[in-house]
Amino acid sequence: MKQDPKAELRVISRTEPPASKLNDSIVVLTAGGAVLCALVFAVALPLGGPLPLYGGALSLGLLLFGVAIRRYFTDRFPDIEAIELREIPDPDHADEPLSDVEALGPRRSFLKRALIASGALFGIGIAAPPIASLGPAPGGTLLRTAWRPGVRLVTNEGLPVQPDDLAMGGIASIWPQDAIGQERSSVLLLRLTTPPVAPTNLDWVVDNVVAYSKVCTHAGCPVALYREQDNALFCPCHQSTFDPSRGAVPTFGPAARALPQLPLGLDDQGYLVALDDFQAQVGPAFD
């Protein structure tokens, strides 16, 4: 069979490793050790042995087999340094056409443009509807939450809340009744030690109890932490800080908007209820 002469290796230096009994033993011992490790792994894993045992056996087996392979190759083959010619781009083909079949005269070149244009339109036409099917149109979804006039504030466990359930300086995580876990409706209920001031809407404060959206206006994390030393609401994700006694305006960090205040009132049984949905946009910016 005729060999491609370019495929030949151009050897620059060649060193033969000396035959070594030690090396032979290393190959045999490491390969044998690897098999032993595989055995331990194969027995310990199905029998529910401890993870360090079968994991350790697998790890050691892989490492030992690596040694065996390396040792085998250094002993079995000469160490060769070779040189290879880089392929120099062949300039002879530079002016050649890609194919020998040429399109017919310029008379029909408008066809080409028409076909490309219609191809693009056709592509968009059949690709766009499936993409649009992937999700509902947002419509006003992001402008509303589950809060409606008269909806009770409930805890994670679904219990309604009275102002006195909160200690002075206390804080609670609250949901609309029947919408527990509906993320954008989550609310923080606070009982402030001093009466809040503007821009808090004081009509929506009951006995120093005030409710704000828990969804950060920056990137939507729950504003889950309350820092007592300076009475601040704090988002653990990006450290936006809000002042609950002044309408939860942002005082530090990347948030640019206040946490919306929930219109708060009492029903005839003395439980806290929403008077309406939030009057400002909940959560991060969109569109």
Partner: peptide, 13 residues
């Protein structure tokens, strides 16, 4: 933004 988010998430998070 809201459209792309709804396409990828299949609705509101």
């Amino acid at each position: 933004g809201d459209r792309v988010a709804f396409w990828i998430f299949g609705g509101d998070f």
